[in-house]
Computed example of a mutant assay.
Amino acid sequence: MRDKTRKDEINWASLKNINVYIDQNKILSDININLRYGENILILGPNGSGKSTFLKLLNRSIYPINSNNSSFKMFNKENINIWDLRKKIGFLFKEMEQRVNNGVKLYDVISSGFSGVFNSRYSNLLSEREKIKIENLTNEWELSNIISNEFQSLSDGQKRRALIARALVYEPNILVLDEPFCNLDIKSNFILNLNLNKLINQSVNVVYVTHNLESILPKTNRVILIKEGKILNDGSPNELINTKILSDLFNISIKVIEQEGYWRMLPLSS
């Protein structure tokens, strides 16, 4: 069972004066932010603004430049074991789908959440508890009828649900998702949105990137706007998801409409 004793306003990540360079190019600049339990966070910004890099800081696949006045703590630790981190946070990144070789079964992809390796040999070493967990996840994410299919033969929606199931094998309190709704059709988008809201109701905190306002989760309670590697603004959806702010963020004239917790974006004539 997930830990429901956490109280809101407790930081699980604290970033102070963080700068990130990739191939000598500055991708993130002067990042100062705390991420807290009880928050479901949307990260919004144009392509190339540094959103995915910010998420990769959280999964420790990218490291910031160290300086005397910078610090980066996760769960109150500056150094955290990667496998300990995986048990606390589940991750989904766009490139994961391409990392799965042809012939790998869906079951092996989900079971790799325990081993880190997409290989049936490791799936055969699972404990009974781990096998039961995978069975429960495949039922919850509507994957049980295709569990023996090859991963690369699946639809985009099925792949996405499979990789989120993989991210949940340790029942983490936090789920970090890089563009989970990308390339999904209407039905797959709806199913994923519904399932993520169920997780939020089970006290899982979701941090996610999306470019589609219609995919914003209704229970999102914090929005971080990133542009050109810097955090431009940080506040509630009601404060930041509006016509003026998003037109400025994306350098385009748009009209933003909210209805019953869902958002739409319409073009404005110049």
Rank of each mutant, 00 (worst) to 15 (best):
M1N: 12
R2S: 09
D3R: 15
D3V: 07
R6H: 14
R6N: 12
R6D: 01
K7N: 12
E9C: 10
I10W: 00
N11T: 09
A13L: 11
L15A: 10
Y21L: 15
I22T: 14
D23V: 00
L28F: 00
D30N: 15
I31M: 09
L35E: 06
Y37E: 11
G38Y: 00
E39Q: 14
N40E: 04
G45I: 05
P46C: 11
N47E: 06
G50S: 06
K51Q: 09
S52I: 04
L57I: 00
L57D: 04
S67M: 09
S70L: 11
F75H: 10
K77Y: 08
I82P: 01
D84Y: 03
L85R: 04
R86P: 01
K87P: 00
K87D: 02
I89A: 03
I89V: 04
L92I: 15
M96A: 15
Q98P: 00
Q98C: 06
R99I: 06
V100E: 02
V100H: 01
V100M: 06
G103W: 01
V104D: 03
K105P: 01
Y107A: 11
I110D: 12
G113A: 13
F118M: 14
S120Y: 10
S123Y: 03
S123I: 00
L126M: 13
L126W: 02
S127L: 04
E128T: 03
K131E: 12
K133N: 10
I134R: 08
E135G: 05
N136I: 04
T138Q: 01
N139D: 08
E140A: 12
W141Q: 11
S144I: 02
N145S: 15
I146L: 06
I147T: 07
S148K: 14
N149F: 13
S153V: 10
R160N: 07
A162W: 00
L163P: 06
A165Y: 08
A165P: 05
L168C: 07
E171K: 15
E171A: 14
L177S: 03
L184A: 14
D185W: 04
D185F: 13
I186H: 11
K187P: 05
F190V: 00
F190H: 13
I191P: 01
L196W: 08
L199T: 01
V207C: 13
V209N: 11
V209C: 07
T210E: 01
N212A: 04
L213R: 11
L213N: 13
E214K: 13
E214S: 14
L217V: 07
K219W: 03
I224R: 02
I224N: 02
L225E: 02
L225I: 03
I226Q: 09
G229N: 11
G229K: 11
N233H: 13
G235F: 12
S236A: 15
L240H: 06
T243C: 12
T243F: 10
L246G: 05
S247T: 14
L249W: 09
I254Y: 06
K255S: 13
V256R: 13
I257T: 11
E260L: 09
Y262W: 07
Y262M: 10
W263M: 09
M265F: 01
L268A: 07
L268H: 07
S269H: 06
